[in-house]
């Protein structure tokens, strides 16, 4: 479904992604894990067109999308829930969700998507008229994911969905991600919480300073001693 080949991205003179290649198959949950600054978000941002790659190829559903502007990529069925949620605080919860359906025309279909989202996140229904900026962190994350689903994506990209949330909410968010996937949405997930990400993912890629250093089945990666030490906090006092 999504295929990335030899992706190179620069921020000025900084070579942020150095030949990253990976793929996501239909129906999977794939996770990219790695430390801060490894290039996880940059990878996602180049997939959704916010950052332009210097070289390499990004193919989505058989189409090369390197030079497609970000606002058109959404229409192709790729939805990116950005890091830090980036909900629109000056819009109501309902308006935020409707922004997710910005590219869609059919009012009845939009309505049924909205009902699905409300069913998945009942709390958003209660707060639909409230300004999104007044919600708690967990609720804002639900708005962000709900908004991402409103475009009816075939591929949902989630960047750090558990950031800043309490452990209970982290569990809730991950079980939601799993359910979304079970209902037929392919998921590409970036997480610093590698432990949780590896629990839900089918496959994983480990990024380090702009390169992929390991890849494989999530269960294998989880068992790999090098990964355990570096990313799962085992024998590592600095782990956070």
């Amino acid at each position: 479904m999504l295929e990335i080949k030899d992706l190179n991205v620069f921020y000025g003179s900084i070579h942020a992604l150095q030949g990253v290649s990976f793929n996501v198959n239909e129906g999977e949950i794939v996770t990219l894990i790695g430390a801060n600054g490894a290039g996880k978000s940059t990878t996602l941002r180049s997939v959704s067109g916010i950052v332009k790659a210097k070289s390499g190829e990004i193919t989505f559903c058989g189409k090369k999308i390197n030079s497609v502007p970000a606002h058109k990529i959404v229409r192709m069925g790729l939805s990116h829930v950005p890091e830090g949620r980036q909900i629109f605080p000056n819009l109501t919860v309902m308006e935020n969700l409707m922004m997710g359906a910005y590219t869609r025309k059919d009012k009845n279909e939009i309505k049924s998507s909205l009902e699905e989202v409300m069913e998945r996140f009942p709390r958003l229904g209660e707060r639909s008229k409230q300004m999104a900026g007044t919600l708690s962190g967990g609720e804002q994350q639900m708005v962000a994911i709900g908004r991402g689903l409103m475009s009816k994506p075939s591929l949902l990209i989630l960047d750090e969905p558990s950031m800043g949330l309490s452990p209970v909410l982290v569990d809730e968010i991950f079980s939601i991600i799993k359910k979304i996937n079970q209902q037929g949405v392919t998921v590409l997930l970036v997480e610093q919480n590698a432990f949780m990400a590896l629990q839900v993912a089918n496959r994983a890629y480990v990024l380090e300073t702009g390169r992929i250093i390991f890849s494989g089945k999530a269960s294998d990666i989880q068992a790999d001693p090098r990964v355990r030490q570096a990313y799962l906090g085992e024998n590592d006092e600095e782990a956070s």
Partner: peptide, 24 residues
């Protein structure tokens, strides 16, 4: 209107608006 909603999102963050499919 939709245009107005797009304007309000662009006033918050250009990239977040782009990810919704808004032509900034």
């Amino acid at each position: 209107t939709k245009v107005g909603m797009a304007m309000r999102t662009v006033s918050v963050d250009h990239n977040a608006a782009r990810l919704m499919g808004v032509n900034v």
